[in-house]
Design a protein around this nucleic acid. Sequence first.
DNA 1: AGCCTTATTGATAATCTTTTTCAATAAGGG
DNA 2: CCCTTATTGAAAAAGATTATCAATAAGGCT
Lengths: 146, 146
Amino acid sequence: MSWQKVLSNNGYRVSGPRRLVMELLAESAQPMTPLEIYQALSQSGRALGMVSVYRALELLAELGLVCVVYNPNGSSGYVAGSAGHHHHILCKRCHRTITFAGSEDLSDLIQRVEAETNFRVSDHLLQLYGICPECQKISADTVEDN
Amino acid sequence: MSWQKVLSNNGYRVSGPRRLVMELLAESAQPMTPLEIYQALSQSGRALGMVSVYRALELLAELGLVCVVYNPNGSSGYVAGSAGHHHHILCKRCHRTITFAGSEDLSDLIQRVEAETNFRVSDHLLQLYGICPECQKISADTVEDN
DNA sequence: AGCCTTATTGATAATCTTTTTCAATAAGGG
DNA sequence: CCCTTATTGAAAAAGATTATCAATAAGGCT
């Protein structure tokens, strides 16, 4: 289902600012902060208010159309979200972020933890960090490592 | 190794504010924000500057003595960190947070994702969310669910 | 135990981020 | 094409974080 449809079906309008934010994130390989989004759109002439960026992100996140990802250093940003259960993997070098499908791979771990802690687990946050294929090539050329 | 030792060994002093923050987090069952830490210490008479809370947290986090945990709603807080590879599980009802040991449980998943994406995975962020034993009891009594 | 060096603190101010307010605008149904 | 009302944007308020620098205190040394 298109993001426009998701908005409509939930009683929200497909407005200019929401479209701009959504399309920008869909094109971006890296997570973006509200400020980065605002600046990128301003510079490309498609101006909109900073406040609208915040409001658009808040709504889109609530509807699951964008996701928050956390950098290893503590900062965070938004990426366009695909439907269904999924997680993100993030390049520590260039910050390129892509999605991978969630699966039952965690169920063993979750069962173990439930048994150990007596918590009942309903949800989780999982992100992987590493080096993307492109940056691996660069590493192979130059000697620098990280 | 004690947190005092970790500070000393890295050339830092075991100062009052660092002690206060460290001990407060060690006693707290829930993650705390800088402001909450500041207020809790102020109210119990052990006053210190807000700035010192930030600086203490920054240093303690850098040394791995405290960890950041993310709430499902996007807010985040600090908890005292145990040594070694571990993760956190967090009660959605009362925010009680405890640690569970990291293990090789993710290696299958990581291998699968590396194969799918060609990323080289070096690190990860994993947190579980659920209901703690105490809050499960309360749920059993009252009818409300979440 | 007391001194000395210097890392650390805390108050203030500056900066940056996010939220509130409310009149003006525009989305989309009729 | 109009009308209703959700949404926007500018400005201001509120909140969070960081920089500055003189005063303080930690811990090595004697």
